[in-house]
Design a protein around this nucleic acid. Structure first.
Length: 197
DNA sequence: TGAATGATGCGCT
DNA sequence: GCGCATCATTCAT
């Protein structure tokens, strides 16, 4: 096995059209250097939320206190609480002011699996990160990570040259407006997705 | 295996 | 007060 080249992704990766980034972010490795140790996972599923005209996007109708990070620099983390219970983690994309993001909905655990099991007890390894709320719980992501610069040293993406041979698309999950848009992207071969098929 | 449901907090009208 | 980018549990097939 030749060792894969690990290239850290910078601002320019995020400073592009969201629908162009979406298929490319699949297979990239998200690294989190937490206080308890290093966690990493291969991205398998994302959804796009784009701008003030997308009715499902938190930026719809203009900026608010909560959605502020969405309007910031590309490569910013946008984290919010959903249903009073779980957190959702987003990569902010496009130029500052455009307010677009990719919601991380699924990943495959690589490093720090023990820590993930401590955060999410009693589950199989491929059920640790297969859903946006579950990813945040297992990784230990919360509002303290909101607004974090993803080109810094805490949380960032690496390109390990993992090939994603087949990319599936579908409508977005769990929304009531903007349902017709095919803005969910996933690695068909993965067994760590929020939904199968 | 799938449908229904409750948990639970907060942003926004 | 309503609705929400979710998930685990329960109950039914």
């Amino acid at each position: 096995m030749p060792s894969a080249q690990k290239k850290r992704l910078g601002r320019s990766f995020y400073d592009r059209p969201t629908l162009e980034i979406a298929p490319e972010i699949l297979g990239k490795v998200l690294v989190y250097n937490s206080k308890r140790g290093r966690l990493s996972a291969r991205v398998t599923e994302v959804e796009a939320y784009i701008g003030e005209t997308d009715p499902a996007c938190h930026a719809f109708g203009g900026p608010t206190r909560r959605s502020q990070p969405l309007f910031g620099f590309p490569g910013t983390a946008y984290v919010y609480l959903i249903y009073g219970v779980y957190f959702c983690f987003n990569f902010v994309t496009e130029r500052e002011g455009k307010a677009a993001a990719l919601l991380l909905r699924g990943a495959e655990a690589m490093e720090g699996v023990e820590i993930m099991h401590e955060n999410s007890p009693g589950r199989k390894e491929n059920r640790l990160l297969n859903g946006p709320g579950k990813f945040c719980r297992s990784f230990g992501i919360d509002l303290t990570h909101n607004g974090l610069d993803l080109t810094g040293n805490d949380i960032y993406l690496e390109d390990h040259s993992f090939a994603v041979t087949e990319i599936g698309t579908s409508t977005r999950i769990g929304i009531s407006k903007g349902k017709e848009l095919m803005w969910r992207f996933f690695d068909v071969r993965s067994d760590s997705l929020s939904r199968t098929a």
